[in-house]
């Protein structure tokens, strides 16, 4: 066993961007089967879907939905940064885009929250 890099070594923006991208990706992957199951309710007729939609019309679900929108916004914007690093002309680790990702996440999160409450 060699010594390993620890949290002090990881304290830089590109590593945080990696962490957010990985965690949001995992969370979205976990959610997808649930999403398809809910859509699958439509196969059991309009009544079944309606029943589910009424069930899902609760504050807890709204909060979950809001979380998903936030995760999706973060994952999408972070993905654009990675694509630019991998396929664009090299211009550093594009830390400006890490800030843009965070900003886009906040804007999308606030926007969706506003839509929920209005």
């Amino acid at each position: 066993m060699t010594r390993r890099p620890d949290f002090r070594s990881r304290a830089h923006p590109a590593w945080w961007a990696f962490l957010v991208h990985r965690l949001s990706g995992l969370a979205l992957a976990l959610f997808l089967p649930l999403h398809f199951w809910a859509l699958g309710q439509a196969l059991h007729g309009a009544a079944a879907l309606d029943a589910f939609l009424r069930f899902a019309d609760q504050p807890l679900f709204k909060f979950g939905e809001w979380g998903l929108v936030l995760l999706l916004a973060l994952h999408a914007a972070g993905g654009v940064r990675l694509l630019l690093i991998e396929f664009g002309a090299w211009s550093g680790l594009r830390k400006n885009l890490i800030a843009v990702t965070a900003g886009f996440g906040v804007v999308a999160g606030l926007g969706f929250a506003l839509a929920l409450f209005s």
């Binding site: 830089h12 590109a14 590593w15 990696f18 690093i85 991998e86 680790l93």
Partner: peptide, 26 residues
């Protein structure tokens, strides 16, 4: 490589291995 950028962040010579790695992928 997961494009964590630690190499590029820390290289004392200001080299960006992340850039070369992206180039190799292409």
């Amino acid at each position: 490589c997961h494009t964590q950028g630690a190499c590029t962040e820390r290289c004392p010579k200001g080299i960006a291995p992340t850039a070369g790695i992206a180039g190799l992928k292409r």
